[in-house]
Design a protein around this nucleic acid. Sequence first.
DNA 1: GCCAATACCTTGTAACGCGAGGTATAATGC
DNA 2: GCATTATACCTCGCGTTACAAGGTATTGGC
Lengths: 112, 112
Amino acid sequence: MAENNSNFMSGVPELLILRLVREKEMYGYELVQAIRERSRDAIALGEGVIYPVLHALERDGALSSSRKTVNGRSRVYYALTAAGAQRLDDLAGNWSRLTDAIQSILIGVQHA
Amino acid sequence: MAENNSNFMSGVPELLILRLVREKEMYGYELVQAIRERSRDAIALGEGVIYPVLHALERDGALSSSRKTVNGRSRVYYALTAAGAQRLDDLAGNWSRLTDAIQSILIGVQHA
DNA sequence: GCCAATACCTTGTAACGCGAGGTATAATGC
DNA sequence: GCATTATACCTCGCGTTACAAGGTATTGGC
């Protein structure tokens, strides 16, 4: 019953977060900006999106968190777990297959 | 106030329908199968998705419908209007920009 | 005569993304 | 010293959307 039955287009914020955190530990506020910057403003996910997803990912064991004080700033850093890495691979694979499928329809590829 | 404020990932069923109908008039049941076949089962949108979207697109003037009887079968064929073609271009452009942005994050492109 | 396939449709639900708001602290400007 | 902005965290409630499930009717195969 613990199956994931969300809709076919969802889970992109999750994917982006997992991918960014894979490179280095990051905190919520930083992720909001990183996504905006790296996408050159094409994607602007606010804190109302990022924080709930972070909490869900931690609850599911895909991320681990640690509170750190850096520069007199208290931050909650998130790191990728082994389960999180697995989940990232799954999501990235799904995303790739999905976009390929959509692309093939948009291009108008010859179909059997 | 008639502004479109849906979420950043939505509208793909709409995009696929408009794109398929651009090639030739199609009816709902046919679209369900065409999407499944052309995507090689990667995307399986049911009738509960397709029909409501078709009605909405017609209401918005992006599609026009005509009831025809073919082979003793009564079908509602949908054709792309000029407005629909415009909408298709917009959606396709948005989709392209979005996937490029996501791809650049997934790849881990060097960011300014 | 029966079942599967074709063809249309609607209802209800759940979740997802998101804006808006709320708190607290540090840095900056005046 | 004081106010404003930036940093950093969080949650609530809303609207859309995709979807499964169910409902009707007709045609074709066996």
